[in-house]
C-alpha cells in the first residue's frame, strides 16, 4: 500500500497538511463502486458484441446499451447492395468488425425501395 512518502514525486511538490486517513479506511473496504459513466465508457471501448454480453452484469449496466447496441444506435449503416448474391451488407461505420449480410428474396436489380428508415442509411451500389 502507498505510504504518504510515495506521493512525493519528482515534478510535483506536495505540501501536506493532513494525514491520509481516508486512504486506509477505503483500501480495507471490499465494495468496489464503478460509476455508470465509467461503465458506459469502458463498454464503448470494446466491440458491441462483448459490450452487449457484459451489459447483463446487472440492471444498472443494462441501461447503457443504447450507446453501443448496433441495432438501435443512431449512427447510419453503410449499405452495400451485392448484385451477385441478391443480398445486401450492412456495415457499422463506427466499428468495421460489425456487419450483417441480409438476403433479399424479392430483390429486383431494377428498382430498390427502402422504406421505414429510422436512423438513415448510407447507400452504395456495387
Amino acid at each position: 500500500m502507498a505510504s504518504p512518502s510515495d506521493f512525493i514525486h519528482i515534478n510535483y511538490m506536495i505540501s501536506s497538511n493532513k494525514k491520509h486517513n481516508g486512504e486506509v479506511t477505503k483500501a480495507n473496504g471490499n465494495s468496489r463502486y464503478i460509476s455508470i459513466d465509467l461503465v458506459e465508457s469502458v463498454l464503448m471501448h470494446m466491440n458491441p458484441k462483448d459490450a452487449m454480453r457484459l451489459s447483463t452484469t446487472c440492471k444498472e449496466w443494462r441501461v447503457t446499451i443504447p450507446q453501443y447496441d448496433p441495432t438501435i444506435r443512431k449512427t447510419p449503416w453503410f449499405f452495400t447492395i451485392m448484385r451477385s448474391t441478391n443480398s445486401c451488407i450492412l456495415r457499422s461505420v463506427v466499428n468495421e468488425d460489425t456487419s450483417f449480410e441480409i438476403k433479399l428474396p424479392c430483390y429486383s436489380s431494377e428498382r430498390i425501395f427502402i422504406d421505414n428508415v429510422l436512423h438513415g442509411w448510407l447507400g452504395k451500389n456495387s
Binding site: 510515495d6 506521493f7 510535483y12 506536495i14 501536506s16 481516508g22 486512504e23
Partner: peptide, 12 residues
Amino acid sequence: APVLAKLLELFN
C-alpha cells in the same frame, strides 16, 4: 489526495 497523487504520477 491519494487518487490525485496517483493521477499526477501517471500524467508524468
